[in-house]
Simulated scan of single mutants.
Amino acid sequence: MFHLIKRDLILQKKQLLIFLPFILLFIIMDAHPVLTFLVASFFIPFNTYAYDEKAETNILLNSLPYTRREIIASRYLGAVVYMIISVGLTSAVLLSLGKLFTMMDIALGSGLFLLFSAFTFPLFYILKPGYITTAVIVVFIILSGIGPPIVALLAEHFSVITDFVMNLSIPILYTGSAVLIMLIYLMSWGLSTVIYQRKVF
Results as ranks from 00 to 15, higher is better:
119 F>M: 10
131 Y>F: 12
173 L>S: 15
106 I>G: 03
94 L>I: 09
174 Y>M: 15
161 I>L: 15
110 S>Y: 03
161 I>S: 11
155 A>Q: 15
162 T>H: 06
129 P>V: 09
127 L>K: 12
125 Y>H: 15
136 V>I: 15
152 A>D: 14
147 G>F: 04
84 I>W: 06
126 I>G: 02
112 L>A: 14
102 T>P: 04
81 V>K: 00
109 G>Q: 05
93 V>R: 03
152 A>W: 09
81 V>M: 07
124 F>Q: 01
145 G>N: 11
160 V>M: 10
148 P>R: 02
109 G>F: 06
163 D>Q: 14
90 T>F: 05
78 G>H: 00
115 L>S: 06
77 L>M: 09
101 F>V: 09
108 L>P: 03
84 I>T: 12
122 P>K: 01
129 P>A: 12
90 T>N: 03
155 A>F: 11
92 A>H: 06
160 V>K: 11
125 Y>Q: 09
126 I>Q: 06
131 Y>G: 15
173 L>D: 11
140 F>D: 03
166 M>D: 14
76 Y>R: 00
75 R>D: 11
141 I>Y: 12
112 L>F: 15
76 Y>T: 05
162 T>K: 09
129 P>T: 13
100 L>T: 14
120 T>Q: 10
76 Y>K: 01
115 L>Y: 04
82 Y>C: 09
170 I>M: 14
103 M>S: 13
77 L>C: 12
129 P>H: 14
122 P>W: 03
80 V>M: 11
126 I>T: 10
109 G>E: 09
171 P>Q: 03
97 L>M: 15
148 P>W: 03
137 I>K: 04
90 T>S: 10
156 E>C: 07
81 V>S: 01
99 K>I: 14
103 M>D: 11
143 L>G: 09
121 F>P: 01
101 F>M: 08
109 G>V: 08
103 M>P: 04
141 I>L: 15
83 M>D: 07
150 I>C: 02
144 S>T: 12
146 I>G: 05
161 I>A: 15
90 T>E: 06
174 Y>W: 13
98 G>K: 02
130 G>S: 08
168 L>G: 02
131 Y>C: 08
149 P>C: 07
163 D>P: 02
87 V>Q: 06
142 I>P: 01
81 V>C: 09
158 F>Q: 06
172 I>T: 14
78 G>V: 01
171 P>K: 04
142 I>E: 01
131 Y>T: 12
169 S>K: 11
114 L>P: 06
117 S>N: 11
132 I>E: 01
104 M>V: 13
149 P>M: 06
162 T>A: 14
105 D>K: 01
120 T>M: 14
154 L>S: 07
148 P>L: 05
91 S>W: 03
91 S>F: 06
147 G>S: 02
75 R>P: 04
109 G>S: 10
153 L>T: 14
148 P>C: 07
106 I>D: 07
167 N>L: 12
118 A>H: 04
122 P>H: 01
156 E>A: 14
173 L>A: 14
164 F>E: 11
87 V>R: 00
161 I>R: 00
114 L>D: 07
131 Y>D: 11
137 I>Y: 13
73 A>H: 04
128 K>W: 04
116 F>H: 05
164 F>C: 04
100 L>W: 06
145 G>Q: 10
119 F>P: 00
94 L>R: 03
105 D>L: 04
92 A>T: 10
140 F>G: 07
161 I>P: 03
117 S>Y: 10
123 L>A: 15
127 L>M: 13
141 I>P: 04
